[in-house]
Design a protein around this nucleic acid. Structure first.
Lengths: 107, 107
DNA sequence: TCGATAGTACGACGAGCATCGTACCACAAA
DNA sequence: TTTGTGGTACGATGCTCGTCGTACTATCGA
């Protein structure tokens, strides 16, 4: 069975914001936004174990932020940009534009 | 001593998103955004106790979302719209524009 | 068939959170 | 001075979260 993804109309602002409020997940979303090509879960360089990765990807998927498609033994992740932009216009852009750290990001 | 507020340059995206990811706090922010006049903590009609309210206001203040100014026995809250907009352009607008619930918000 | 690779499932642990109740403080009005 | 009001402080409780390790499944390639 295909992983359950929330319908675009069911996305909750609070849930989306919560999914984005973790630094690791924020990083994942940034990476996905930086390159439109779907990515394998393992292709994100995040100093955490595989099980923790799986956990974060599930949170992102269940919040409606990413789409996970099974492809052989891998799982391809992509941002649900269209759905997000339709439901919460400007939100993703604002989050992605936000400086990753303290204002020193301009270094 | 005056309540400690984070400097505009120190606002963290993840912290701000976390502060906004609670339904009660989201409601508080919406109310503050709907009326520019500073509001007393007690003037929000949120079915929670006083101590819980205090807790939420502290989270919002420490994340840099609101400004709390002491005025006699009361505490006046206002949105730090300018600081937020400068640091994370478009974020607040996108969050406030977001439907409060499932898409039925268009009722 | 054997081994490597990609990822999940489950259980555990420590930390933090949302909530409450009670006690308390500061100020204002009677 | 007494009473009421607006809010904090502190402790408790139950839940969720982020993280890990180990065990497992499924697929692909040699």
């Amino acid at each position: 069975m295909g992983l359950s993804h929330p319908h675009p109309d069911e996305l909750q602002m609070a849930t989306v914001l919560h999914a984005l409020s973790d630094p690791q997940r924020l990083r994942i979303v940034r990476i996905l936004a930086g390159d439109p090509a779907p990515r394998r879960c393992g292709s994100f360089d995040l100093d955490i174990t595989k099980s923790t990765l799986t956990h974060h990807f599930r949170i992102l998927r269940e919040a409606g932020l990413i789409d996970q498609r099974e492809e052989g033994t891998a799982r391809l992740n992509s941002l649900r940009r269209g759905d997000l932009d339709r439901r919460f216009p400007g939100l993703l852009d604002a989050v992605l534009a936000g400086a990753p750290g303290p204002v020193a990001a301009s270094v």
